[in-house]
Design a protein around this nucleic acid. Sequence first.
DNA 1: CTTATTGGATAGTGACAGTATCCAGTCGTG
DNA 2: CACGACTGGATACTGTCACTATCCAATAAG
Lengths: 233, 233
Amino acid sequence: MRMSELSERSGVPVATIKYYLREGLVPAGISTSATQAAYDDSHLERLRLVRVLREIGQVPVAAVGAVLAAVDDPNLPLADVIALAHHGLGPPPPVDPTDEHRRARAEVDAFVARRGWSVEAGAPSIDALAAALVALRSVTGPCTADVFVPYADAADELARFELAWIDPSQGVGDTIGQIVVGTVVYEQALVALRRLAEEHYSGERFGRRADRPPTKRRRPTQGTSPGAEANGR
Amino acid sequence: MRMSELSERSGVPVATIKYYLREGLVPAGISTSATQAAYDDSHLERLRLVRVLREIGQVPVAAVGAVLAAVDDPNLPLADVIALAHHGLGPPPPVDPTDEHRRARAEVDAFVARRGWSVEAGAPSIDALAAALVALRSVTGPCTADVFVPYADAADELARFELAWIDPSQGVGDTIGQIVVGTVVYEQALVALRRLAEEHYSGERFGRRADRPPTKRRRPTQGTSPGAEANGR
DNA sequence: CTTATTGGATAGTGACAGTATCCAGTCGTG
DNA sequence: CACGACTGGATACTGTCACTATCCAATAAG
């Protein structure tokens, strides 16, 4: 198919597809002549994947590129790709090597070890967790990494469940796609569900709030251009 | 204290404090003369809160302003503030009222009702969840909202736990602060922990990845296509 | 043969979150 | 009291990100 058809079928504007092509998020089509190229379903699929990562996961374009490059690399072992995906899809590591942070990091390392989890030393999630600990202390006084125990329990259970789900007998590329999407989409689902649950229980505890017109919030100030979403964050 | 001292003690540059002042994230100090104002610990505290929301929660400045305005409003019932905080701190609602999305929304509504959670109809988390469902389908074929069951279970448990923790006997403002911080910080912690757990179990399942120099990630690398740097590892 | 499209290159846009510069009024030291 | 350093406030500038828009020459379709 031509680029315009790819655009129609995916809902992504042509200019944006060109941009993704430039950035290497989507492989080039097969040139049939100097001014024509053919795209197939694999391109469509890839485009959908990119869109999910961008819109649901709010993953920066550059990070999507890095992760997908790893996914595409045929001679990279599965475990490597998974680790790369996790690292690439996470929040950017804080450029904030304060003493405070380093100490928190050490505590988090110990906490993780105590749980029996073994992860790579450079995992950005460790830093993220340390940053959370620092933040918590800066606002609500001193505490230890053990405040995370219930969350770690929940995370452990979910991770076991998710891993049991993966079926590596299918194509490796597919498996990876599943993992990438799962990492991002289920994460969003999880946080949304947690908020809903909290809203429910806090309403139960502190009284339901009176009915009002729904809150208008954070308009990205972009007209109603169809298909074009600007998401902040 | 002067602004420069506030800056030193909080680690936030003076220019940024001025910016926050302009945006109303931090209340003005008490003017002691035409060119002098005094700030106290409440300002310092507020500044730390703003920084946590921005850096850990990645909440846009405008949203921080909206939430804090609600927090500061003395004649707003606790439940309202909690709801406002939840709505304000969430991801921006998708400006994406496709049929697909509306259908997913209805399914999510039913799913939430089935769980016995009662939340406001306009809750952005419902939309977020619906968006996740749409995304999931667009990439990995059809599925029902029931794929979220295990996540909802985990969320339910966590929310119960968190709510049990809140002690409203203290000042209301404090309680709210706790909730706001908790919503954002523990969310990040939960996400990080889930990733760590996944990394652990996937390493266990698919073989630990060989030791290599730690992954450098998401370099802006202007000029080169982002595929380049992820390749040779 | 003419005209409409297409792919590719280059430049422009708008939101966001700060930074930097100016300026006049004050403080505090000699 | 003189005067240079500092302060708060207003205004303007910067950099990044993710797109969009414009051009252009080479086809492809009619």
